[in-house]
Amino acid sequence: MRPFKYVRATDPANAVALVANRPGAAFLAGGTNLVDHMKLGIAEPDLLVDVSRLPLDRIEQSPAGGVRIGAAVRNSDLAADPMIRTRYPALSQALLAGASGQLRTLATTAGNLMQRTRCPYFQDLTTPCNKRTPGAGCSAIGGHNRDHAILGCSAECIATHPSDMAVALAALEASVVVLGPEGERRVPLADFYRLPGDTPHLDTNLGRGELILAVEMPPLAFAERSAYRKVRDRASFAFALVSVAAALDVRDGAVADVRVALGGVAHTPWRALRAEAMLRGGPATPDAFRAAADAELAAAQPLPGNAFKVPLARNTIVNVLTALARETA
């Protein structure tokens, strides 16, 4: 591992200044992904700015009636928070579906958002990868791509985003509060991540030195009836093949409102806007859920190794929405 200097940030502005002015600098929070990348040689920072002890560890009601989650809140604490469990159950469930108990103790909200793909070629320095080395080529296209993306892919990259939490946040329309050298801004989750296009080395739209301060959940009354379902090769402690976060508001048998996001299928958490638009105002029936899922997945670009994800995603959407509809009835 390359030697590095370690500094504990005194406040958020100090952290931003330290990283913004030094190309080799990186923020360190729980470390569960970054330390691994430093061991593997994927990341080689020469300065780590530790932001884990900044006073960003609170979960509180926001003035707008939603919830503000500090960037340094541990995944275990966020999953267990009574307000999150009651008002945004899909978020608790997503967190509890990720990693293991002893990793969730360390992992933070911001670190979870910033974790990078688990594409095996990205993590293996001996294989070409456009995300690691722009222009090197993609080993997954034409290689082992069972775990890879079916939506929003490019000819450069078919990696998926690994976070469960971010899928729930996408469905619940969270925003990310960011501090940069130019000041503070709010980024809706829909604009936070990038599709690979021809710049797959960029996961997010954050600028150099921008630090996540918090995640803000808007008030969404029907989020109390939300759920997260994760399909994976093992019953526990594995990344998603496909996951679905959804919230459903059914009135008199019709869909008054709905939110759906998919995980394990794209370079970003995939908000299923097309499916949502089809469902609104229509019947809350498995047939309608299936038709909406099919419409969303019509744009899928499956490869031989991951074609199974198309019916798996459809069935999981139908399954989650049907369960939520039954709960409401």
Binding site: G31, T32, L48, S76, Q102, T105
Partner: peptide, 19 residues
């Protein structure tokens, strides 16, 4: 490598001691 850090279980292989 799991231990209890400040009473909570945590892996120690992905944690820098200095942090």
């Amino acid at each position: 490598c799991t231990v209890l850090i400040d009473g909570r279980r945590a892996t120690t292989c992905l944690a820098f001691a200095v942090a």
